[in-house]
Amino acid sequence: MEKPQLIIDGKRLDGREMEDLRPVKITAHVLNDANGSAYVEWGKNKILAGVYGPRECIPRHDQSLIRAVVRARYNMAPFCSLEEHGRSGPSRRSVELSKVISEVFENVIISEAYPKTQIQIFIEVLQSDGGTRCAAVTAAAVALADAGIPMRDLVCAVAVGKADGQLVLDCSKEEDNYGESDMPVAIAPRNGEILLFQMDGLLTRDEIDTGLTMVQRAAEKISAMQAAALQQVYERKTAPKLEM
C-alpha cells in the first residue's frame, strides 16, 4: 500500500495534536483467580494483565537464592488483529517482548524479599492497534500493584514516533506502519529512569532528546490514571469483572 499523508493541516489522522495521547482507560482487579490483574484500553488496544506470585519457582534450576525471578509472558490472541487469523504459540516478536518486559519489572520489584520464588506476569493482547507493548507494560504495572508485590515505583510506558517529519506522541497503527521512526519507552515516573528503550527507523540526536522529554511529560498523566484505577478498587463492593 502507498504511504498515506499522516499529518494534515497540523493534525494527525485521528484528529490528535502532536503530543496528545489516545483515549486511555485503566481498570484494576478485573479477574478473580489471579493475585492481581488489570485491563487497559488504549485507543483500540485491549490488553489484559494478570499476576501470580511470589510462588514456588519451577523448574528449580531457574530459581535464585537471592531474589524472586520475574517472568513476563506477552501473548497475542489469534483474533486480536484487523487482518488475518493469527497463529497460536509464541512468535520471535512475542518472545523478545516478553524478555524486555520482564527486565523492566526486575528493576522495580523488590525481589530480594522473596528468594527462591518466581513472580509471573501474564499479558494477553485481546485487540491490537499499534503500541501494544507500551499498553502492556502499563497494564502489568497495575496488575503487580494489585497483587501487592512490593515495588519501588509504578512503571508506565508510551511511544514517541516520527511521522511526516514531526515527532508524535503515542503512535497510532498508521503512524507506526508508515512513519519514519518508532521509539517505545517505559519509565519509572518517580525519578524519570528509563527501563525499556527500543527504537527503529531514523532519528537525529536532538529528536531523541525531545522525544524522551515528551515521554516524561506523558508519563505523569498515565501514572495518575494508574494510581486512580488502583484506588478505585477499594471503593467497589462487587466481585471482579471484566467490562470491555
Partner: peptide
C-alpha cells in the same frame, strides 16, 4: 497509597516503605 508514592519528605523507618535521597516512599498498595 500506591507503590512509589511519597509518604514523607524526610527519611522514616517504616514497614512497606523505603528511603531514597532523604525521602520516604511506599512499596505496596
Amino acid at each position: 497509597i500506591v507503590p512509589g508514592q511519597m509518604v514523607a519528605d524526610k527519611p522514616l523507618k517504616m514497614g512497606y516503605a523505603y528511603v531514597e535521597n532523604g525521602k520516604t516512599y511506599a512499596t505496596v498498595m
